[in-house]
Write a protein that binds this DNA or RNA. Structure first.
Lengths: 107, 107
DNA sequence: AAGTAATATTGCAATATTACGATGAATAAT
DNA sequence: ATTATTCATCGTAATATTGCAATATTACTT
């Protein structure tokens, strides 16, 4: 079916899965790394950097944006994409908490 | 196409994406949480716990197993699934490192 | 041996994701 | 004004994911 049965899961589980989905593609990981590296807040050199077609990058950016991780400001005709650090740290917290809670074992 | 162009990305980016993919479904998050919670190393009450059909759970377990996160030992006809804590901590380290490296911003 | 319980595997339908060419909208440059 | 540049969106093809019924497999129980 390809449809996730959301009703079965807790809000926390869904939230973790949502975050993970953003990171679940190397291109998006690359984009996040690149954006955070660029001090000058340079925009779509991302296309050159990552090596995928512009519409594809745009699509990936949308996924990142929908997760609240992107801040974009126009500078002339250039769009300057930046990481929303606050949101990013929020996600990190959620993940860290998951990893710390989920670690006991039995065998 | 639905095919990820792996050649474009670094090993680290691919690794992070692989890990994230495991966590990118609430059912798998639920399974990991449940497994780690069960001291007695109880097996497929997972089906009851998570609420999906047995083949579906089995499929999700396979994804988790392929990521090296699952240790399974047979106890009679019961299969006892446990978290591979070492591997889990490895993943945690990779993630933590990613989050810590990727945090600077510009605007 | 026959029946039952626990898992895995197979096959398939529905949907989601990934990638890109074509196109569109906005702005800068000429 | 015309053209070029930057980015988003649309449409579409290829592939992946999710979910389950049916079936297979294995091992315990009787």
């Amino acid at each position: 079916m390809g449809v996730t049965k959301m009703s079965l899961h807790t809000t926390e589980q869904i939230e973790i899965a949502e975050i993970a989905k953003v990171l679940a593609h190397p291109a998006r990981v690359a984009i996040l790394q690149y954006i955070s590296k660029q001090e000058g807040c340079i925009c779509n050199d991302i296309v050159d950097e990552v090596g995928l077609a512009q519409p594809t990058i745009s699509q990936h950016l949308q996924v990142i944006r929908k997760a609240g991780l992107l801040k974009g400001t126009f500078e002339g005709r250039n769009l300057c994409y930046c990481l929303d650090v606050d949101r990013f740290k929020e996600l990190q917290k959620t993940f860290t908490s998951f990893f710390n809670t989920t670690s006991a074992s039995c065998c």
